[in-house]
Amino acid sequence: MFLIKYIKEVFGAVKSLAIGMRRTLSYFVRPKEIITQQYPDERPVIAERFRGEVVLMHDENNEHACTGCTACELACPNGTIKIVTKFDTTPEGKKKKALDTFVYRLEMCTMCNLCVEACPTSAIKMDTAYEHSVFDRNKLTKKLNNEGSKIRSGVE
């Protein structure tokens, strides 16, 4: 009785090992199925919802939708965003708060998307760019609004 169990055990072990070896061999003899992407040569396909960095959207007239309300700055858990505001004079002669510099520190951002959700005018969004390496970490502190850009008319 013991002997039968012993022999069964040995054969069961050999069989299960053979199943495992067949699996690896099947991969070995089909080198075409390799899933490695050779990154700098082959660009990976990035999903649209991928969060790479925060961008401030500008249209063709170099206008953006940011009112400088600092809702994103308040929403950010890490203090990644710093909004510097200025006062513009409207054509009617009234003083109005407007965006001066949108400072974004990529090194501190965790891509949590809270700033995008907090924005009342949908001025910012998450971009899919992912190659952020630089030689100087100061370059990771970015100014998101373009030079000379202004707020799109009609956005309050």
């Binding site: 690896t24 080198p31 390799i34 899933i35 490695t36 050779q38």
Partner: peptide
């Protein structure tokens, strides 16, 4: 090379 092919990788290239 053998290990990489068995793991569906490319190995040193």
């Amino acid at each position: 090379k053998v290990s990489s092919f068995m793991q569906v990788r490319l190995g040193p290239n």
